[in-house]
């Protein structure tokens, strides 16, 4: 991979919840067109870190740089404006609406503005979401289907498609393969590869080691609010699994000397 500028750089991020130190000075770099796997046991801090990046939490300390520029995010909409899209674990879809409505939720295309009422440009949104699904090779028969009629894998695909619809710089996926069938998992992983092929930069949080192994370029392991491992994904899967588990349970730690408590 060519050495490019980092899309995201998080420096020394700290976040406390009352007496709990959820993040204890985490550094994280995401390079352009890279898929970064983020692993760790429950309560390791990976979701908290991603919520900081997506603007849901404001860090107590540390700074975030997007394409080299320091940014401040007060809420998820700020992050979105900066091109950071989050695919939530519960997908944040409105099941009673159709695929198009969900893709454009909160960012509807308007054909006329009768102050203060915007008139929906339904056809152009339908066309746009159809194009989007085709481009990502997502298999959904019609963009007019209600989301409640879709399978789990298709819903995941819709949530991911939404994250890519508006020229996002970074896509964060929180457990995209949890609660899916084996066939659906492979489709979602194909979708991640497709996104990478089209130039996206992606962070994936997952418990499933095989998934991280199969799509990620680099892996970060977190434990107890710290980064304990940051390395490219190499080697065969058994060796990879053994090593990652060692880091996850605390048997190994690459950054032990950097602890500042």
């Amino acid at each position: 991979m060519p050495e490019t500028t980092a899309v995201v750089e998080m420096r020394n991020i700290k976040k406390n919840f009352a007496a709990v130190q959820a993040l204890r000075g985490v550094d994280l770099v995401l390079r352009h067109n890279e898929v970064l796997g983020l692993m760790g046991d429950n309560a390791a801090g990976k979701s908290t870190l991603m919520k900081v990046l997506s603007g849901a939490y404001i860090p107590d300390e540390g700074e975030i740089l997007i394409e080299g520029k320091k940014v401040h995010m007060a809420d998820p909409l700020d992050a979105r404006r900066l091109g950071i899209e989050m695919v939530y674990q519960d997908l944040a879809l409105a099941n009673n609406l159709d695929v198009t409505s969900n893709v454009f939720l909160g960012r509807e295309t308007v054909s006329a503005q009768l102050i203060p009422i915007g008139v929906l440009d339904s056809r152009s949104m339908e066309q746009e979401s159809k194009r989007l699904l085709d481009r990502l090779k997502i298999d959904i028969p019609s963009v007019r289907l209600l989301v409640e009629r879709l399978s789990g894998g298709q819903r995941q695909a819709v949530a991911i498609a939404r994250a890519t619809a508006f020229n996002s710089k970074v896509i964060i996926m929180d457990e995209p393969t949890a609660a899916l069938s084996v066939a659906a998992i492979s489709k979602v992983l194909d979708l991640v590869r497709e996104l990478k092929a089209q130039g996206a930069s992606i962070i994936i949080i997952s418990h499933r080691l095989e998934d991280i192994y199969s799509v990620s370029d680099r892996l970060v392991v977190m434990r107890q609010g710290r980064k304990v491992r940051d390395c490219p994904v190499t080697g065969d899967i058994d060796e990879f699994r053994e090593r990652v588990v060692a880091y996850m349970i605390g048997a190994r730690d690459d950054f032990a000397n950097a602890v500042v408590d």
Binding site: L77, R80, A92, L93, A94, N96, L105, G106
Partner: peptide
């Protein structure tokens, strides 16, 4: 349909 989703999407 989903108040949490709506809120997360800026509604």
């Amino acid at each position: 349909g989903n108040p949490e989703a709506a809120e997360l999407n800026g509604i």
